[in-house]
Simulated assay, not measured.
Amino acid sequence: MGPPLLHLAEDGRATLTLQRPQHHHRLHREDLHALQQHLRALAQEPRARVLVLTASGPVFCSGFHLGELEEAEAGAADPQLFEHAVDALEALPLPTVARLNGSVYGGATDLALACDFRIGVQGMELRMPAARLGLHYYPSGLQRYVSRLGLQAAKRLFLLAQAVRSDELLRIGYLDQQVPAEALDAATDATVQALLAGAPLALQGMKLSLDDTARGPDAAAAARIAERVARCAVSADLQEGLAAWAARRAPRFQGR
């Protein structure tokens, strides 16, 4: 029981594991601070290539600890702490995979949505009960729902506040894959290996540029995208990728 744990493997796979199974991995303020600290560390860690976010048991995460909600809205040091933590996950340059071992509720639905890929077990469900609590969800979470799932799916999930099962989550695009529980590790590993095979600069740049593009036209975003394109165009990784393609061998990317 405690804040999320971070592990970095030799191949560059980082794993963040939620650590409150007895409370369905609800997120306390200390967990959100720890999550932000881990994300800052990963953003500066040159060995890190991919992040997997996961937990254990029948529930992936039950969202923000509602017992701390009044504190969060009563002028705490960071009243938007949950929003800021999820936004930091989305902004992480590394490609991210949510390994959904079970159901997602409340803010956890957005935590997983902030990841680039979501792989969930058959039978899991999603429920966003904000309307039943009298809570107006934070702006960046609404934007993520609409940009990733579309307006009508976002209205259905927020306004009806009904439980939605895994097969429907796959249909509306919330899940990228739905697999039996015993196949979850293999499916996650396959996605991670596909990401590890890519050139780090290109992967990280395109991840951020795709997210910038999804938010709509913006001059500052266009400048950031142009800078990423230019950086990859003169990179050693591009030269290695072209040489490996010509020689019909596996590339050896260095992330520079």
Rank of each mutant, 00 (worst) to 15 (best):
R47E: 14
A154L: 05
E45N: 05
D87N: 08
A222S: 10
L151V: 12
E73Y: 04
Q254M: 04
T96W: 03
P139R: 08
A183E: 13
D167Y: 01
P46C: 05
P129W: 10
A76D: 15
N101Q: 05
F253C: 07
Q239H: 11
S209L: 06
L94W: 00
G205W: 01
D237L: 09
D189W: 08
H24D: 14
A190T: 01
P79H: 03
A41T: 12
Q162Y: 00
T191R: 11
V179T: 07
Q37E: 14
A219E: 14
L16T: 02
Q152P: 01
L94K: 03
L94H: 04
D31H: 05
Q143C: 03
S103V: 06
L151P: 01
P95G: 05
D11M: 04
L35E: 03
G216W: 02
R165F: 07
A243R: 13
S62C: 13
A153W: 08
E227A: 15
A236D: 15
A9S: 11
D218Y: 01
L159I: 09
E90C: 11
P79Y: 03
R156D: 15
D211V: 03
L184G: 12
A236T: 13
P79M: 04
A226W: 07
L39Q: 02
R40I: 05
A244K: 07
A244V: 01
A247H: 07
A186H: 09
A220M: 13
T109G: 15
C61H: 00
C61L: 06
R228Q: 15
P21N: 10
A190M: 08
A48M: 05
R252Y: 06
L16Y: 09
Y138L: 13
S56F: 02
L51Y: 01
G141V: 09
D189V: 00
R171I: 03
V59M: 07
K207Q: 14
A14P: 01
L5T: 13
H136Y: 04
W245Q: 07
D78Y: 01
L142T: 07
F60R: 00
H28E: 13
D176S: 03
H25P: 05
S235T: 05
Y138V: 12
L92H: 06
A130H: 09
Q36Y: 00
L111E: 14
P58N: 10
